[in-house]
Design a binder for these strands. Structure first.
Length: 211
DNA sequence: ATCCCGAGGG
DNA sequence: CCCTCTGGAT
């Protein structure tokens, strides 16, 4: 692994030591629901909704029992709420019919569910099944690009580049730490470069990019 | 490439 | 007003 990358990872580990999943949940199904809800939405907004939602919803059968219009009302404060409601309902249906009410353990099966793409499958695999995955969202992509770890705008390309550069046993933590850094310092709009502990190692800094 | 789509911040 | 938020399906 590159020396500069090692130093970056070391500094990130120091700043964001033991960092857990940002989406609150008590079982794999609840995480699956939360991940669907998280599209183009802050985790804070998702957690606000799921705090109430998950007192009634423990598994896919609960969704089918309550119905999609009920669900839609519960998540109305989130963006894309109609589509998310449909996806959660359809996914619950498929889980009951094809997977015995359980969340599947493989990427292929997960991505086959409506509303679950590569990023969401990666989050589920790494968070509840302990499978190494580097889920690339808007934060991970942006931070990776600014640090010069990739030049791709396509998330799949970014994931390929990162997975080539970084060992699998670090993928899950790197995902979380990049997100934490992307929220706090390396923000999309006005990045706080003057407060950033990675600045000496960042190509964005003209004077520090040389070595 | 386009659509979905509310909350929050600037 | 504007942009962004742990995207995915068509």
């Amino acid at each position: 692994m590159d020396k500069r990358i090692k130093e970056i990872l070391h500094l990130l580990a120091g700043e964001y030591p033991h960092i857990g999943p940002a989406l609150n949940h008590k079982n794999p199904f609840q995480l699956l629901v939360a991940v669907i809800l998280s599209a183009q939405t802050t985790d804070q907004q998702v957690n606000k909704v799921t705090e109430k939602l998950f007192t009634r919803i423990k598994g896919p059968a609960d969704i089918l029992e309550m119905g999609s219009s009920w669900l839609e009302k519960q998540i109305r404060t989130l963006g894309l709420f109609r589509r998310k409601s449909q996806h959660i309902y359809e996914t619950s249906l498929q889980l009951m019919e094809k997977h015995g009410g359980c969340v599947p353990h493989t990427r292929g099966e997960l991505q086959n569910l409506p509303g679950i793409g590569r990023k969401s499958a990666g989050v589920i695999l790494s968070t509840v099944f302990g499978v190494p995955a580097l889920a690339v969202d808007t934060h991970v992509a942006r931070v990776s690009r600014r640090l010069g770890l990739t030049d791709g705008s396509n998330p799949y390309v970014v994931e390929e580049d990162l997975c080539r550069l970084l060992p699998p046993d670090l993928w899950t933590m790197i995902h979380r730490r990049f997100i934490a850094h992307g929220r706090k310092i390396c923000r999309a709009r006005k990045p706080l470069c003057d407060e950033c502990f990675l600045l000496p190692h960042c190509p964005q800094n003209f004077f520090g990019s040389g070595k």
